[in-house]
Structure formats: C-alpha cells, structure tokens
C-alpha cells in the first residue's frame, strides 16, 4: 500500500497518526481512502467536488503532483505521498 505522510497541523484529525497506509491506483484514490477513514479531515483537504483545496500541496516522492498528472497521477504500492502546507509559517 502507498503511504501518505500527514503534516503536523492535520494530525489532530488523524488521532495523531503521522502516516496512513492507503489503497488505490491514483493520488486521488489514496486521498479518498484517507478522508474516508478520517472524516473530519475531508473539509481541510478537498472541496465539495472532491478536488484538492487551494493551497494544499501534494508530492509523490519528490515531485509536485501538479507537474505530473495532478490528482490522477498513478501510484505504486511503495509510493510515498506527502501533504505539505503551501507556506512555512501558517502552523506556528
């Protein structure tokens, strides 16, 4: 399963878990698995249509998914997906 790394400010919504093992073939499916497991997280990550909200950056390995296939970017079983705040200071 792919691993999603949760940034500190969102861990309040994941019972303090820093990592989430996600099933799925794309970034979008992995994020859906995450927000299905932790419902309170959904409003902070995706909009009503299920698309990533503004200013939420997602990386597959070291690559920003915006330079790949965005949410449709395919993932592998050993993929590492990182959710990173768009800015440095917002959480402190």
């Amino acid at each position: 399963m792919a691993r999603i790394i949760i940034p500190t400010p969102l861990r309040k919504f994941t019972s303090n878990q820093a990592n989430f093992e996600a099933e799925g073939k794309t970034v979008s499916e992995a994020i859906l698995a995450l927000t299905t497991s932790y419902g309170n997280l959904k409003q902070h990550l995706v909009d009503d249509e299920g698309k990533l909200r503004s200013f939420v950056r997602v990386y597959l390995g070291d690559e920003d998914i915006n330079v790949l296939q965005k949410e449709a970017t395919p993932i592998e079983k050993d993929s590492i997906i990182s959710i990173i705040p768009a800015i440095a200071g917002g959480i402190a």
Partner: peptide, 19 residues
C-alpha cells in the same frame, strides 16, 4: 485566524491545531 489548518496566510496561526 485562518479558517483551516492548511492555509496560505504566511505567519498566521490556526490556534486549534498549532502550538
């Protein structure tokens, strides 16, 4: 405060989820 923990307001704190 920003309305969400993941926001774009550099320097601001979402106190509910921050130190």
């Amino acid at each position: 405060q920003p309305e969400s923990p993941l926001h774009a307001l550099e320097g601001w704190k979402h106190l509910e989820t921050a130190v």
